[in-house]
Amino acid sequence: MSHQKKSNVIVEHLRRIQMQELLVKGERLDGRGLTETRPLKIETNIIQKANGSARVTLGNTQVIAGVKIDTGEPYGDRPNEGIMICGAEVLPLASAYSEPGPPDEDAIELARVVDRGIRESEMIDVNKLVLTKGKVVYKISVDVSILNIDGNLFDAASYAAASALLTAKLPKFKIEDGKVVDTNESTPTPTRTIPVSVTMAKIGDVIIADPTHEEESIMDGRVTMTTDAEGNVCAVQKGGAGTFTVEQINHIVETTITKGNEIRSILKKATENGSI
């Protein structure tokens, strides 16, 4: 199956062959096993002006997420729920090939997949974010900035967003004479679970976890799957022009749940201790 030409990294023909030959033997260029993820480092509370923040490095991929909490009007069809929006932006400084300008389809997909994982897992207890029913609710905005690109932006951005939310302090607002007043006190943001996304790429018939940029540039397709703490699947996105058999998808579900649990304990430790 032909790969997509999308990537900006031009992989030399010989290197491509070398990668493919290694993969068939169950090895990877950087010495990792097929389902082994790169070292994950999380630092929290790195931006003081934000209500919550986290820097995540996954191998050489580096991202920062910041949470800003404000109030706003609820959505018309959900009057008794607070608002949570998650966005992601690939900054021009993130690689020699990133350029300023409106987000392209890849950046839009990234932002929407990260948002979907947090939203569909019901990580944030939006019912606890209502100040006046139908009128004033908390509005939580999570923004992820991509600082350095080396593959698997989906997972790095999703870990950063989750870590920032887990450490975010919810300001205590009260309504006085119909106006929102900040009491200068805060409580932890109400969360129910920790969603963890795991991205697996398919190169030929080999499936690998946490692809680097170089691996992404020769992959046929990928699947990003988000699981919650109970081991349920909450969000999935297949990307790339490749295909998957039902057996491959079942293998991905199993691996994602196991890997998800490992990574969830790292996120938990980091957000309790400030960094890992």
Binding site: R116, E120, S121, E122, V223, M225, D228, E230, G231, N232, V233, C234, A235, V236, Q237, K238, T243, F244, T245, V246, I249, N250, V253, E254, I257
Partner: peptide
Amino acid sequence: NLEKVTLMQVDGTLSKEEYKKCLD
């Protein structure tokens, strides 16, 4: 005919067993 999945998305919560049933 080739028995290959070319698009897959999920919104919402499914257990592992439900996932497989849903896909089938």
